[in-house]
């Protein structure tokens, strides 16, 4: 079994979001970088669980980014990947990123490609579907359970107001979310082992960038919270009904 896990570097979930250079760039001053939680907690850990059951499994990690991604990919290796690939390109265009990963996937013929359900910075939830299309594989998004029986995966995916259970013969692409696995913390043995695991730097292939960021905006500040006294509940309901027209 060969699994590719796609990981992305994102700001920590508690980061204050600010921009610089006339709001054209994310201001990373003081920002702590993490592995995108969906990639780490769910996609990577589920891949590690598969390897624990079937030790012949090989887990490759891939990220598309500059050298500042190396710490997070080392951390991912400490959790349990076998070998990592960093495609040395800085891009915010989903197609560009997906096409780079698809190129690696074509060369290595993975049985499974896992992504997180979305990255918490650009929230597009696009990479998994794009990779699947570019390598012409089935894609199951928003998986909450994943079981493997020989060459067939049984996957529970979330729907609006329910869930659907699907069987798919490998290879396939899956985007992972809560439920599929439980978050782990790297142990000392893993951290030591990660130092000697290969981290390959690949140069990107020539791909068109189809979109670009013009600038960023912060939401307009709220007018402030209108406080109602605890003994005046009817006033709250009146405001919600008449002023906010919320019901």
């Amino acid at each position: 079994m060969k699994i590719l896990v796609c990981v992305s570097k994102t700001p920590d979930t508690t980061s204050k979001i600010a921009f610089k250079n006339a709001n054209t760039q994310f201001d990373d001053a003081g920002v702590q970088w993490i592995i995108n939680p969906y990639d780490e907690w769910f996609a990577l850990v589920r891949a590690i669980e598969i390897k624990e059951k079937d030790p012949g499994t090989i887990i490759h990690l891939v990220t598309v980014g500059a050298a500042d991604c190396d710490p997070i990919i080392r951390k991912a290796l400490a959790l349990g990947g076998d070998e990592a690939f960093r495609i040395n390109a800085d891009s915010n265009d989903s197609y560009y990123i997906a096409a780079q990963i698809a190129e690696l996937a074509k060369q290595n013929q993975y049985d499974l490609i896992f992504t997180g359900k979305e990255a918490i910075d650009y929230n597009s939830a696009a990479i998994g579907g794009m990779i699947a299309e570019l390598v012409d594989l089935p894609y199951i998004s928003l998986a909450t359970q994943f079981e493997l029986n020989a060459n067939t995966a049984t996957i529970t995916r979330e729907l609006e107001g329910g869930e659907e259970i699907a069987e798919v013969v490998l290879p396939l692409v899956v985007s992972c979310q809560k439920g599929i696995a439980e978050q782990r913390i790297p142990n000392m043995r893993g951290i030591m082992a990660a130092r000697t695991k290969p981290l390959n730097i690949l140069e990107p292939i020539a791909i068109d960038t189809l979109t670009s960021i013009v600038n960023f905006e912060l939401p307009a500040p709220k007018a402030g919270c209108k406080m109602v006294a605890a003994d005046n509940v009817p006033e709250l309901i009146r405001l919600l009904h008449e002023e906010a027209k919320a019901f």
Partner: peptide
């Protein structure tokens, strides 16, 4: 629509048509 269906289909369509994609 960026619903569960949208999330599993729109990105594929964009890649298939090599069309620029904005999700969300």
């Amino acid at each position: 629509s960026q619903t569960h269906t949208g999330k599993s289909v729109a990105s594929r369509v964009a890649a298939r048509l090599k069309a620029g994609f904005v999700a969300g």
